[in-house]
Every structure is written in C-alpha cells, then in structure tokens.
Design a protein around this nucleic acid. Structure first.
Lengths: 357, 357
DNA sequence: ATGAAAGCGCTAACAG
DNA sequence: CTGTTAGCGCTTTCAT
C-alpha cells in the first residue's frame, strides 16, 4: 500500500480494476461551499431543500458534493436539529439462543432502516438495574424512541425513570397503565386456526395439551381451541384438555399417554408448543400409533426442530418479524387509533403431521 | 396524571410510594455551572477529571449535577471530542432464525457495554449494496469501529468503500488481504475433541459424516477427525468418511445407511452438524440399532433440536458468545499481536447419544 | 436567491 | 485552581 500526500481532499484511483473512492477525513460543508463558490448556509439549504435555490447553484453545489465525496456529519446535524434519527432496542430477554428475539430485532431494524433510522441494541438480560443504565445511555445519546422487548410475552412494570419525552413501545411485553403501545402475537387466533385446521380435516375428537399456566399464551391458545370447537358445534370435553404446567417434552409425552388411554381417545392433538408436540410424537410412536394416520398432531412456534421431526410437524408460526416492524412503525408514525394493544395474526404452516387420510 | 408549570428545572415528587425523578428537557452544563456558581468549563473538568480541581468545588458541582439530575448531552460531547463511543455491527446473514447470529451480536454488545460503548445494529442481508449504504450511515454517525458478521464462516471481499480510518473486524467472516482481524470458531479443534471423545470411550471404528464441501467447516472438522485418529494410532479408512455435500437430514440419513452396510460398520459416528446427526439417528432407529449402545453418535452446533432428540445428542458447541466478545475487544483494544486470525475453541457437550456401555 | 452571523452543548487551550 | 474564549460542523434566522 502506498501513501502519498495530496492537496485536494479527494482523490480517486483505480487499483487492480477496482475503483475505490478515498475521501480524506473531515471534508466539511465549508469545503463544499468553497469549491462551489457559495456560502455554507447555501449548501445546507440545497441538502435540506429548506429554501428556494436557483437551479444553477443547485447543480454547482451538487457537483462539489460529489467531487469531494462529501457526507454531512450527522453528529453535528443532530446537535443542531435536536433529533438523531436513531432508536434504541432494550432486549429484556436473557436467552441468547432464542430465534424469536432475533426475528423481533430484525423486524424492528428493517422498518427503522426503511424510514432512515438506525437502531441501538441493548441487552438488559432482565435486570432492572441494567435496564435503567441503558435507558440513561440511550437518553444521553438522544434517541428518538425506545422499544422494550422480550422473548416471551410478559406483563412488566413501567420503567421508573424519566424518559425526557422520548416515546416508548413494548414488544412482546405489555404494561397495565393505559397509554402505551404494545405489540403482541395473537395467540388466541393461533389456537383458533390450529384447531379449525384439524376440524376441517375431519377430526371431531381434538385434544389440547397446554403449557405453563402462568403464561398468557397458554390461556389464549386454549381459548382459541375452545372457540373453534364451539363454532363447529363440537361439545367441549374437559378430559381432552391436558397439561402438566410445563412447556417441555416430558409434559407432552405424559399428557399424550393420559389422552390415549381415555375410553374415547382423540384423533388429533393440538399442542401449545412444538416441544410439547415433540414429546407427544414420542409417546405416539411408543404406542405404535401412526402420525398422522392414527392421530394428527399440531405444534406451535414453528421451530426448526418441528420441521426436522419424522413426520415433519405442522405448526403455528408467530409473526415476530411483522411484530418488530410494527413496533418501529408505531413508534415512528404513531397511529391515530385509541387502540394501544396490537395483536398480530399467527400463521399455520402445514406439514405432514396433520395431513392424514 | 397532572401537569403543572415549575420554574426550576427539576422537581421530584412521590406518587403511590414510587419515587420518580422528573428532569425537564434540556438541563445543560450551563445550568449546572450557574447553580454551582462556577464556569461551565469547570463543570466539564470535574466530569472529565481532566484537570486538578479543589475538593470544595468538586463537591459543589457534584451536588448541582445531582440536584438538577443533569446528564451530559453525548451528541455535543461527540461533536467536540470527535468520537462517539459507539460501534456498528453489520450483519451479513439473511437468516432471521439463526441463533448463532444472536449469540454473536449479544457477545459483541456485552463486551462493548462493559467498555462504555453502544452498538448500532444493521442488517445487510448479504446485499453488497445494502452493506455499502449501511457503511455510509455508520460512517456518517461517526462510529468508532465496525464489525462485519455472518452466520456461517465465509471468505468475503474487503468493503470497497472508504472507511475514513475507522477500524473494522470480521466475525465469522474473513478476508484474504492481510492486516484485518478476523474471529472464527476453531472447527479443527472441534472435530478433534469430538473424535477424541469417541475414542476415549473405547471406539476404534469411528465414522465421519461430512457437510457441504465448499464450507471451510467441513474441511476443518474432517481434519480434526483425521488427526484425532492419527494421535490414537487408528488407521484412517476413507470409506468411513461419508457425506452428500449437504447439511440436511437426508444427507445424514443416507450416509448412515451407506456406513452401516459396510462389511465392517463403525461403532461410532461423528456428524459435521446436528441436522446430519438427526438424519443419522433416524437411519439408526430404522435399522433397529440402539444409540448409544450399538453405535455412538455426536453432532455439531449444540442446537436445541439436538438436545430434544431421543436420546439427547452429544454435540460440539461453537463459542459464539465468546467470539462476539472477542471481536469487540480486538476492535476496542487492538492487541499488539501480529496474529490477525483468532480461532476460539469449541466445547463438547456430552449427552446420552455418545455415552454407551 | 444568497450570505452573514449566531448558536446547538460541550471541551480544550490559554490566561490569570 | 478557575474562568475566558474559541470552535467542533451544522442549521437557522435575518438581512440584503
């Protein structure tokens, strides 16, 4: 690599067929103004379109900008304009192996990027002290908005720290106080479509295996299940709802055994998540029951593991990417709605486990 | 909620037992100076410790800061100091469902946070155009460093955009040009420990099922496998290495069938990733072979799915969190080493599938 | 339509 | 030890 002095602030040189632009650090609006033979304020005006400028000077300025490879210093601009076109994400989840969180983040980032905003990533790992620290640095950095998110929908306390008027929204979290936007998956609707799918495929004895009772998701999905039965005029039977107050395989496994030893066992099982469904599948295999021919099976989460089972498991996918996007949208373009809690629909992804004869 | 005018810049009020601080927007260094009866520069000096100040005024200033709940405007500070204590992540992966990426990001963020740095999250989704755009905004925002990352280790081109002297490091990516730090998992060592584990448990006929040949990981893990055999004086047999140039279950499944129909089939199989191992497990089940009693099985990635199989799969975990941390460290505190490519060790996580009699 | 001047909130250089 | 002054790079009145 060769270095050499150059008086101008920009040089371009082609090396190995690759055209690279070198801009010396610190080309400022003054340099552009000088080259174009105008005042800095004029350059500012053409960049911001904040005033009528003669077409002639516009082209002159634009040429100078291009020639110098000038890019305005957004720090200086922010100081002056009092906004940063930046928002912060505070991730309250402490699991690093959760794809939900990544999807939420990527969703936020995409919608932000589309609007010219950048996002700061902060991980509080559920520690309120850490959350407060991050809030401070985010506020110090003059973010224009903050999104709090978690990997599982939870109620949470309002941050007890002054927000300087910076708007906030909760993503996969919510707060009891009115007046705060909250973006959540529609677990109820997810339970509904899963059950409806099973019914549509001819099943009348549909069972439900529930997850941890304290999680909203369990209750909402159950309610969706019930309403789907109801719509189809299938009487609800409480013995067809099982669950061990857990989300793990063991729960799915033993619940399935309970279910299949009923005098009239179900012909289809809807599990509140994929891990339960995987446990259910194990139990069914053990009982030498074919999935989906003897019993149809549906999970929830559309995890990678669900797609990798034999047979691949039908599942309900939560709209995390959309949720992330919506969070950023709501933050950046507050809707006129009174509605503050936004539930986004889940989607059924059909695979072999529910596609019986 | 009641709003009322207050002349001072801070008031504190307790509501419902919850003590909240309200700081009116825009308390500046001048306000603090005025309250403390000193010059703004003095306040600056006590904050930055950049000059000897009498203990007396220090306490006066600190009191004023606390009373006004003052926090310096980091935008203004950045403009002046010419650094932002911020770094950018450019995520080149386009998969939103990859836990690797989240782990890398969280690692970066943790190490950054520990050093008082914030991080911008950008997702280029492998689009060079998008990457260039992000590079520009990151540079506009005056970041102090940039990390490029991906979900699978790849060689990549050096960004063809002037970086204004901002240092960069590659995470799970690398570049052929010398002079750039690159943080990678030690796939070779991962292959080594996996194979050594199997050998230590008494296996002499250890097979290897490879992944996509064009991925470095496949080659490195294979080399680890070979060297482990070599160290143990077990002759290498090329027929014990199978693979369909793919990472999917089907590849693991059919490779296993090939392996088990050998005249002298292996007593242990090391798969280059967990998905292959899951396919292998299916094949073994189908052949009515017990895992781990008839054949031991090891995967790579330590995916959630691997832990959820029956039996749970032993696997090799890549050090993504550590890698992320290291990337930030190398960026923020460049080591004096000439060594530019950093390979971090993987870890064996033992589960039932390799723990035979 | 354009330029001069002031100033965003902070820090650094220099005086005293 | 402390205050005064200048200015980071930009935008915004306010003149002209």
């Amino acid at each position: 690599m060769w270095f050499f002095y150059c008086a101008e602030k920009t040089i371009s040189l082609s090396a190995g067929g690759l055209e690279v632009k070198y801009a010396k650090e610190g080309v400022t609006i003054k340099d552009v103004a000088q080259l174009a033979g105008v005042a800095p304020s004029t350059v500012s005006k053409v960049m911001n379109g904040s005033s009528e400028i003669s077409p002639d000077t516009i082209t002159r300025v634009e040429k100078a900008i291009k020639k110098l490879n000038y890019r305005p210093n957004s720090i200086a601009r922010s100081l002056r304009k009092n906004h940063t076109r930046t928002l912060g994400i505070i991730n309250n989840s402490h699991s690093n192996k959760n794809t939900f969180v990544l999807q939420l983040m990527v969703g936020v980032e995409k919608a932000a990027q589309a609007r010219g905003f950048s996002v700061f990533l902060c991980n509080s790992a559920s520690s309120p002290a850490r959350e407060k620290d991050y809030l401070e640095v985010l506020l110090d950095k003059q973010v224009d908005g903050i999104i709090f998110l978690d990997n599982v929908v939870k109620e949470r306390a309002l941050p007890s720290w002054h927000l300087n008027g910076v708007p906030i929204v909760f993503l996969n979290q919510y707060v009891t106080q009115p007046g705060y936007h909250s973006i959540l998956p529609d677990d109820y609707q997810g339970g509904l479509i899963a059950t409806e799918h099973l019914i549509a495929r001819g099943h009348e004895r549909v069972a439900y295996i529930n997850g941890r009772l304290k999680h909203e998701a369990s209750q909402s999905r159950l309610q969706g299940y019930k309403d789907a039965l109801n719509k189809a005029n299938i009487p609800f039977e409480s013995q067809l709802v099982q669950g061990k107050d857990t989300w793990d395989e063991e729960g799915g496994y033993s619940s399935t055994h309970t279910l299949m030893t009923l005098s009239k066992p179900p012909s289809a099982i809807f599990c509140a998540n994929d891990t339960l469904a995987i446990g259910a599948l194990d139990a069914l295999h053990e009982l030498r029951l074919s999935v989906p021919n003897d019993v149809a099976l549906i999970g929830f989460d559309n995890s990678l593991a669900s797609a990798q089972k034999r047979p691949p498991l039908t599942s309900v996918e939560m709209p995390f990417l959309e949720m992330g996007k919506r969070a950023a949208e709501v933050l950046l373009e507050p809707p006129p709605t009174r509605e503050m809690i936004h539930r986004l629909p889940c989607q059924l992804v059909q695979r072999q486990s529910s596609l019986g004869p």
